[in-house]
Structures are given as structure tokens and as C-alpha cells.
Amino acid sequence: MTTPATTGDVERPANRVLGTRARPERPGPLATSRAFAWRALLKIKHDPDQLYSSFILPIMFTLVFTYLFGGALAGSTGDYLQFLMPGILVMTVIMINMYTGISLNTDITKGIFDRFRGLSIWRPGILAGALLGDALRYAIALVVVTALGLLLGFRPGGGVLGVLGAFLYLQLFAFCLGWLWNAAGLVLKSPESVNQLSSVVLFPLVFASNIFVVPDTMPGWLRVVVGVNPITHAVTAVRGLTAGTLTGDQLLWALVACAALLVVFAPLAMYLFRAKSLR
């Protein structure tokens, strides 16, 4: 016959540990977000390779564009570096930004998202904690890439304050753009497809901007594209901040670019997040 599991006459080692049913108070939004932020920090600590690899492309582009094309584009490599570095800072943040979507998608496909959904927690904390972790990645990457720029001869006229202002703006810009990758991470089937989408979307947007060249010599239609590209406005603002020449108009447009990204993609991502949470 069957051996019902209910014959509890043997003292099992696990019984003592499992006997505790005391449940603490449900954590609030802040405690939940802090727990998820801690998780994001641990990921950086255990797998710093992802962070390192996010420096490589910006550094490569800095070297290639400065020394290969710089002279031809701006008369001297030194002058070109002053023009290029702010754009490279924007690019650095954009390149790390897509990992937001890749991590979220990995959580969903690997099943841990279900674990979190099965808890009685403040759900947006999952995203909030991840965003805090991302902010640290941006900060580290920006410091590293700026240090390289200074080493090569980048001399920002805006001084320390200007550079810090640029970092601050880039944190805001990345936060707003991150919602695009959150939406992608929620919709796409695998982390690889998020990665593929990012190269399809990012490369055209990075080049169809004012990161590498002044758009004045581009054909009219392309100048229109460059003009509506949020990256262009971010680069203009970072250039203005680091050089200490930012105008009110430039700042306004840079903030409008952030707001536009936020207004379009944050509600979309939250809608998808809720849909994914329920289905």
C-alpha cells in the first residue's frame, strides 16, 4: 500500500527549522526598493565583466575618431577631442542603458520574475531597485571614460561643476531612455532579441546625431532626423555643460527630450509590466 507522508513519528532534521511560521510585517516601498537595489549592486560586484565591457566601445570610438578622423574633421586631433568627448559620454550611457532591458528580460525568462510576483511586495520596487543599480553603473562608466578623456587632453571649460552637471543630466537622460528598454525587455522573447533590437535601434540613432560631426554638411532630410533625435539634444546639453556655455534654449530642449522619452515609454512599460504581472 501507499506510505502516506503524514506519519510524523520520526523527528526529521528539517522540522525544527520549518516549524517557524512567524512572518514579519510586509516591507514598504522603500524597503522593497532597497532590497532590489542591493541585488543590483551584488550583480555588479559578482560580474564586473559586463561593466568593463561597456567601456570598451566608447573608448574604442574615442581613439578611432580622435586619431583617425579628428584631424580631418576639426583641423587637429586636440580640437576634435574637445568636440567629441561630450558625445562619447552620452554614447557611454546609452550603451549601458540597454542592459536595463536585458536584465529584466533575463529575470522573466529565467523564472525569478515569477518568484518576485509570487511575493506580497510593492511590485514597482523591482524596477526601482534595478534603476538604482543602473545609476551606479552610469556613474562608474562616466568617471572612467572622462578620466580617459582628460588623459588624452580633454579640457572641459565648465570645470568640475560643469562636468558634474553633465553627469547629473546624463543620469536623468538614461533614466528616461531606460523605460524604452524596460518596455523592450517586457515584450521580447529572449535577452538575445533585446540585444539585437538594441543594435538595430542604437547604431542608427548614435550616428544620426551630432555625437561625431556637426550636422551642417548633412543633406536636408538627414538634418531633420538629427534634429528630432533626442540624443542630439542630450549631446548639445552635455557639450554646453562641460564647456560652460550652456544656453537656456539648449537646456530646455534637452529636458524636453527627456520628458518626451519618459511620457512615451514609461506608461508603455508600466502597462506592459502590469499586463505581464497578471497574465
Binding site: 541585488r39 550583480k43 518568484r115
Partner: peptide, 27 residues
Amino acid sequence: SLTGQYASVDEQLTGGENLVLLGRLLG
């Protein structure tokens, strides 16, 4: 609680960290 068909733990974290994370999320 639910233990799904595929181990739903964070592969990048250590075993101990996984349990601490979930403990904190329980409050």
C-alpha cells in the same frame, strides 16, 4: 509559496545572497 518547474533563483548571486534577498523582501 511556489517553487516552479525551473529553478527561480538568481544565478549571479550566491546561494546565501538569494535567501537574504528573499528574506528582506518578506520583511
